[in-house]
Design a binder for these strands. Structure first.
Length: 298
DNA sequence: GGAGAGTCTACGTTTACATCA
DNA sequence: GCTGATGTAAACGTAGACTCT
């Protein structure tokens, strides 16, 4: 499988990379027992591509940008969005990921064809009925959900104003203020279509959202929420993979460090035993620069 | 250039539902 | 079959960034 990891989303865009913080901390702890490297572990984003460990598996799907002829990871669009500063993910750094991926966003319209800041009425489907494929409806009301309003036929819950994306719901006000929220369990078919779409674009513009919602008999808001949650899941999974990979990197370097320490000790011992011979000694084994320390030396 | 509105996404949380012991 | 614990995912609320007027 082709390895493709992008810098992540707004977390880095906002400069609050939790991953970086957490992994830096864990690396510092992990290497604390090895006194040879006093320099603190650099931020993940600055780790040079020197790790020789095999690339971690890529759990998330990739998508093909036909226009650009590239594969993209859906874990994030930051690296592809010209408007977002590209922050290299740790794995990307370790494997010297293609820098040309930066600045390309398959989910956004090309410059000049700016993505419409459509009012959500554009993608609204006021009459959108509930999904016939839903598996939920028969169970509704289990937890004291009040009867649905007369106008509502489907299983999905109309959404409350809901902070951010909340603009595109016609029947706002029911969520937090009014009643219970009923959860739609997407059918397998619906989920499959969503996944397929997600593999192509991990974000949707209003038109895509509306089209997908119409195709699946869902509300645009439901599609939007699904994509939000899907991005979160992808990111979480990628974080786990990155973490595991960095742990292996750390273990490898720790072992290398031990080996070098042993070698130093042996050489010192030899020097003590035969001080006049050391000039003719064969050179020590090749020194492998620790990537984390190397950063500080650059 | 700054203010405000509108929109978007990430993130954290809540909660409905499913599964299992 | 019932029940409680637990996991998963849909839905929600908020904050920050961006664009446009």
């Amino acid at each position: 499988m082709e390895m493709m990891v992008n810098a992540t989303d707004q977390g880095q865009r906002y400069g609050d990379s939790h991953l970086g913080l957490g992994l830096s901390l864990s690396l510092s702890i992990a290497t604390a027992a090895v006194p040879v490297e006093p320099a603190p572990a650099p931020p993940i984003s600055s780790i040079p591509p020197v790790c020789s460990l095999p690339a971690p598996p890529l759990p998330q799907p990739q998508w093909w940008n036909g226009a650009a002829g590239l594969f993209f990871s859906p874990s994030s669009d930051a690296g592809m969005d010209p408007s977002k500063p590209a922050a290299p993910a740790p794995v990307a750094a370790c494997h010297d990921m293609m820098p040309f991926l930066r600045g390309i966003d398959v989910n956004r319209a090309p410059p000049g064809e700016s993505r419409p800041r459509a009012s959500c009425s554009e993608d609204e489907e006021p009459g959108a009925s509930s999904s016939p494929n839903s598996t939920l409806s028969s169970l509704s009301g289990k937890r004291g959900a009040p009867a649905r309003s007369s106008g509502e036929v489907g299983p999905h819950t109309p959404r409350a104003a809901g902070g951010g994306g909340g603009s595109d719901d016609e029947d706002s006000g029911s969520g937090s203020g009014g009643g219970s929220r009923k959860k739609l369990r997407l059918s397998k078919d619906q989920a499959a279509v969503m996944e397929e779409s997600f593999n192509e674009h991990n974000t949707l513009n209003p038109k895509q959202k509306a089209a997908l919602a119409k195709q699946l008999n869902l509300k645009p808001r439901q599609v939007e929420v699904w994509f939000q949650n899907r991005r979160a899941r992808t990111k979480l999974k990628q974080t786990e993979v990155d973490c595991e990979f960095l742990k292996r990197c750390c273990e490898s370097l720790t072992e290398e460090n031990r080996r070098l320490q042993r070698e130093v000790a042996e050489l010192r011992a030899l020097k003590l035993v035969a001080p006049h011979h050391h000039a003719r000694m064969p050179p020590p084994t090749t020194l492998t620069m620790c990537p984390y320390t190397a950063v500080g030396l650059i």
